[in-house]
Design a protein around this nucleic acid. Structure first.
Lengths: 363, 363
DNA sequence: GGAGGGATTTACATCGATGTAAAAATATGC
DNA sequence: GCATATTTTTACATCGATGTAAATCCCTCC
């Protein structure tokens, strides 16, 4: 019939006060060895476990962080989430996962919606929200953005150098003798999202060789799933002037494209070379294996979690000395508090171009 | 300078008591329209949001459930997690994800470890723990098992009929004229885990045709990643009596196997047919596309979440009328409480064999 | 042997929301 | 018009852990 023991029960059994038990649990200094032993004995005997609800309420920290991604079943985000969860575990945090389906209103909602009400910080990989949205948004929580380079960056963020990565991938295709490279999943070069930045890099690389940037070679994708890649590739090879290479902005698009080319009787890489982004596991065993830009995902996960932890830590101590006590009695004025925020940090992690079969020699 | 408003602030502004505000928030009956309007005005004006820590402490429910899977970067679990998170959202729950790396001690730890301390229930997909472990484990939380059919099932669980699915897949290969089918990722048929059950189905199908069950054709995999599939397939085709079909117990293994066969100059499906399990997205666009057993993942997610919700609900009300009050004052006896548990339910969701190119005709 | 000082320990208040029971306001019946 | 229902609202206690400040304890040293 027993309920879970609380700190009170442990205290009673050990013959000490509740606070002393708390002190033991939290490794406070100034606990005599004897008392500590007694308390630990009681804890073990009763099978006591801290009740996190109580702790959360008192401390104002839950030990949980939110991870907001477009969707898990896109290989890249699954792998990234995997790494982030492991990394968070190193910091004794658990991770709440939200999916936005890359829809703007869901991204907005996730950022200050229900589930985030109770986390200590947020790791957010936006896709649909643009710079303005992000700039406009002031979260009451520490936020670290993933995989973006927002201009009006008021938030910390961690990313790879997308422009350069795309330039390198494009250069590689050009070096392999390709002259007409289409971009699958691209959007007109611009300052905002990943797709725009990669298209930007593509454009730079192409123009650096004196080739014309042709907008009709840049095809946006709706979902970044393999099917989109297949559809767009099929469309492209049927066009009057088909490309001889496809730069796909993620790996599923690329694998779909490879399949569509196969169906169309176009050889990869002999007729058309294909390259992707993200280096998902299965790109290594496709036939042909996939050339891709491999972001340093472990590095990204590590940096992101570290940054978030620092921000959480920073907001805990110095900034708001005791505005709470001070405000006691005042009813008005509940604007968003904006504590830390001393120059948001941008961390750029490395990437590597992995050349595999899909971008082999033309023939 | 404002801190977040609390219920107290709303109450003050609306000129009512805190409890009345709480009543409005929770849609209690007996709140006059006028009061309700006043409170709602105050809530909107202050931008009040419920503090979940307080609510959690008081109600004993956090609104969070834990999902424990081997690892997210295995396509199947990513897709399943995706679906489960969406499903949980329908029930206004958020999902905490833990990864066990399919290691027994991590599975044990995840089940009653740190992060689960504060969730309302657990969805758990065990791989390494066996029946005995599971039977021995009595969680204080509602638990629903995924993808297993533990004998000593003390827990609810949701699964597909693994034996039958494997039998069907094997039959399909046999029907296609294959006579020597290897199982990649298999373990000796037995009662416990998914791998054993599938091997069981395989065995039944093979023996039903009067063929011998040959243990050396059943090769266990360590991680169920594509590389294992590639290694095992390579090994098998080099063996003295190579198989003419591979039944791979998940899709990544199958895709790895296809790649290895390609490297070995063995044609798929002409020389060796390949079939997988799980129907991950990329299996549809591989070359050749992958024949696979497709579990009803949405159905599985829905059933699992529903079952968990019911169990959470059930434990809330009837079983422990007020053992808490009764136990007040008693110090001893804090055994695990075991409230509900009236005959654990088993839900079997459907599956389909999707026949694609990799199991086409022999030649 | 007692003052002084640091190390331990304690009582109590508090974090924010909500259940309980009783008070206050309103409605109903005769 | 007044006693009795019934609906609304309130004050207060509580969920479990921990910060604060005050109370003890234990030494050291003159």
């Amino acid at each position: 019939m027993g309920n879970r023991p609380r700190i009170k029960d442990v205290a009673r059994r050990a013959g000490v006060s509740q606070k002393t038990v708390s002190n033991v649990i939290n490794d406070h200094p100034n606990v005599s060895p004897r008392t500590r032993a007694a308390v630990e004995e009681a804890i073990a005997a009763l099978g006591y476990r801290v009740n996190l609800a109580g702790r959360h309420l008192r401390r104002g920290e839950s030990g949980v962080i939110a991870l907001i991604v477009p969707e898990l079943d896109l290989g890249y985000f699954a792998e990234l989430s995997d790494l982030i969860i492991r990394e968070a575990e190193q910091h004794s945090r658990t991770v709440l996962v939200h999916q936005t389906e890359a829809r703007r209103e869901r991204e907005m909602a996730a950022l200050d919606g229900f589930g985030t009400d109770f986390v200590d910080g947020v790791l957010f990989n936006p896709l649909a929200m643009d710079d303005d949205d992000l700039a406009a948004h002031r979260s009451r929580l520490p936020v670290v953005l993933l995989g973006e380079t927002p201009q009006a960056g008021r938030h910390h963020h961690v990313t790879i150098d997308n422009v350069r990565a795309a330039r390198e991938a494009t250069d590689h295709l050009l070096d392999a003798g390709r002259t007409r490279i289409a971009v699958i999943g691209g959007r007109p070069p611009g300052p905002s999202g990943t797709a725009e930045l990669r298209a930007q890099g593509y454009r730079e690389a192409v123009e650096a060789r004196g080739l014309a940037y042709e907008p009709e070679l840049v095809r946006p994708a709706r979902h970044f799933h393999w099917q989109d890649g297949a559809d767009l590739a099929a469309e492209l090879v049927r066009s009057p002037r088909p490309p001889d290479a496809l730069l796909c902005l993620n790996d599923p698009l690329a694998l779909g494209a490879i399949r569509a080319l196969y169906d169309a009787g176009v050889r990869v890489p002999e007729d058309v070379a294909v390259a992707g982004f993200d280096d998902i596991a299965l790109g290594r065993c496709s036939v042909p294996s996939l050339t891709t830009v491999s972001p340093d995902k472990p590095g990204l996960a590590r940096a992101a979690v570290k940054l978030l932890m620092e921000e959480i830590e920073a907001r805990r101590s110095p900034s708001a000395p005791s505005s709470r006590e001070a405000a006691e009695g005042t009813v008005s004025a509940f604007e968003d508090s904006t504590p830390g925020d001393p120059a948001p940090k941008e961390i750029v992690v490395g990437h590597t171009l992995l050349v595999r079969e899909s971008s082999g020699p033309k023939s």
